[in-house]
Design a protein around this nucleic acid. Structure first.
Lengths: 345, 345
DNA sequence: CCATTTTTTGAATACGTATTCAAAAAAATG
DNA sequence: CATTTTTTTGAATACGTATTCAAAAAATGG
């Protein structure tokens, strides 16, 4: 039996003032008699009244909500991102509506539409595929604050914050070449993501520049599915001329690779070196010790939120676009080591 | 230069009908002439009009949003929970406002207030401390749909879904006793959580019933802080009469324990057996192979969401309270093994 | 074809807040 | 004390939708 909600009208009646006065008290309007203000506040306190933010949003044409569209929250990369963004947003009095696309384009489209319908003040968007270039551009051109996170699009003005993926991949390859690896596999995300594409490109370039031929059989363009990567890796590692090292497109993927290798009783890094991307917190856990390319995630997500809020609260300013590339960093840990001598199975 | 948003009024004017007619078309009201409906839909399509859900919420007194209050999203237990809940909610046309309390009571309080202000239709609440019993009870008594997830309170009618924590802890202890362990440490969460409390209780009871004395030095009530647990474990393991096994209050904590042990070059499970709680996905990864007490998280979170939605959409029904205890299950993997012979350092 | 019923539409209103406009009260000025 | 200025308040309105109420149009029945 849910009670009728209290309104400013109710407060006004009991306090013996008008609804407008109550509203003014709530908004710290200066021209209110001290006595009146105190009386109203007392009634508010006594009744436990709370403002209806929905009605307020309708009038003020803003919701103090932002949308956060993630590929998959159960991937620690997204989870850690979400944590930073949500906590900072809360401090800034914004709340965060989270969507999980499962990396499916149709979910991304639905999420955007629903968020626009809910009148969020802005959206942070991870993992945008090339297929959505037009849609994002339209939003942006309408003056709607959107920020691409860990992904970018080849559009003039759109805002993004992303790592230099090409360079990251090169760091990984260089590290492995230095350890004597010559057969290095690349497990890549879907090529519809430019970030993913860039990583594969960097991998190829660095190999080529060092005089190696590209073996396309060593490159796997997967969806971000644990199971798929797990089985692919198992198959790959059962080959007679299996690679001695694998670069995964994310730490999450690297864990799938490690799992697959372990299930074949391979020793890491003696039998196989593995590198991830992201540097999730778990990567530095000594029990795991994953070598990876660090994205400086905390900085990236904090910046993303603050830039978005800035865009929201300074719409009138000439919208200079925000395009940030962060430097990747190689974190060497225990999953990479010297290439095994030619003791192929 | 953000354009003025289109309203039903605009659509009506262009289509040459009244605002009410447009609204009726949007809501699939049956008594609309086919011709009129088509004309309106055509205009909507052409203009790319989308409904303002804020205004709609104000009228309908529901927002189709739910609140999800989590302890810490970067903990995979919460992340995996969130993923299931968010995806199912999206299917049911609800969106999810996520808060991260960092296990701090004051953030929990703020989150609840903000969500109530935003007029969410219901709230799923994880990790509620005993200190909030009254607040939750008041919400519930006001007919507001709240569901406690992975926690419970000693209140008559409140709704919750939780594992039988006592039994879970007993399973863990029994397993370790069976392997010959006699010094079993327990790293527990804050005692303000009843769930945590129950686990510690089960641990003690099972030990006592098997004829062992409780050694309070082996019980550590920590916050859910990785660093804190990490250092505590290190200290614990450096003791001359260190335990041969540790039961952690969550898989996340178990990983901290494993990290600490690894940093001391201890071999798992030869030098130390470790058990977690939750059975996050990573636990079954062969590279890690964490023995743990499974919570059946997918089922738990799916049920939580569906029960909450049911409560929201059937408020009129006599609110029989929902109180679900799930059975824990021991998942034996590679982080537990026979107790080392008395080769104490 | 008229009376009745059913379908279709628009005008008016409600939702709960913020704000404009105007008036009343209080304070300041001469 | 009369006038002007400043402070304080309330009535009315807007935000964008859904819905009630009433009227108009169309269909049905005899």
């Amino acid at each position: 039996m849910s009670m009728k909600r209290l309104t400013t009208e109710d407060v006004a009646r009991i306090a013996g003032v008008s609804q407008s006065t109550v509203s003014r008290v709530l908004n710290d309007y200066p021209y209110i008699k001290k006595h009146t203000r105190e009386k109203v506040l007392a009634v508010i306190e006594e009744l436990g009244f709370t403002r209806d933010e929905i009605a307020r949003s309708l009038v003020e044409k803003r919701t103090k909500s932002i949308g956060l569209i993630l590929g998959s929250i159960s991937n620690p990369f997204f989870a850690e991102t979400a944590e930073v963004i949500i906590e900072r947003a809360q401090q800034l009095k914004y709340d965060v509506i989270v969507y999980n696309t499962g990396h499916k384009d149709e979910n991304l489209e639905q999420a955007i539409n629903l968020l626009i319908g809910k009148r969020v003040d802005g959206i942070i968007l991870t993992s945008v595929s090339k297929n959505y270039t037009e849609k994002i551009k339209k939003l942006h051109d309408n003056g709607f604050p959107v920020l691409l996170y860990n992904s970018f699009l080849e559009i003039e003005d759109v805002n993004f914050i992303v790592m230099d993926n090409n360079k990251g991949a090169r760091l990984a390859v260089r590290h492995l070449l230095g350890l004597g690896h010559e057969k290095i596999a690349k497990i890549s995300g879907p090529s519809k993501y430019l970030a993913t594409y860039e990583r594969t490109l960097g991998y190829k370039q660095e190999l080529t520049e060092n005089g190696y031929e590209i073996d396309e059989d060593l490159i796997f363009n997967s969806e971000f599915s644990y199971d798929e990567i797990y089985s692919f890796t198992k198959k790959l590692l059962k080959n007679k001329d299996r690679p001695t090292a694998i670069i995964a497109a994310s730490d999450q993927m690297a864990l799938a690779v490690l799992g697959a290798a372990s299930s074949l009783d391979m020793k890491i890094p003696d039998d196989l070196s593995v590198i991830g991307f992201d540097n999730i917190k778990l990567a530095s856990n000594e029990f795991i010790g994953l070598t990876t390319i660090s994205q400086k995630m905390d900085q990236m997500s904090l910046t993303a939120l603050e830039k978005l809020i800035y865009m929201i609260e300074h719409k009138e300013e000439a919208a200079s676009s925000i395009q940030i590339f962060l430097e990747p960093e190689l974190m060497i840990r225990q999953t990479t080591g010297p290439a095994a001598k030619q003791d192929r199975v």
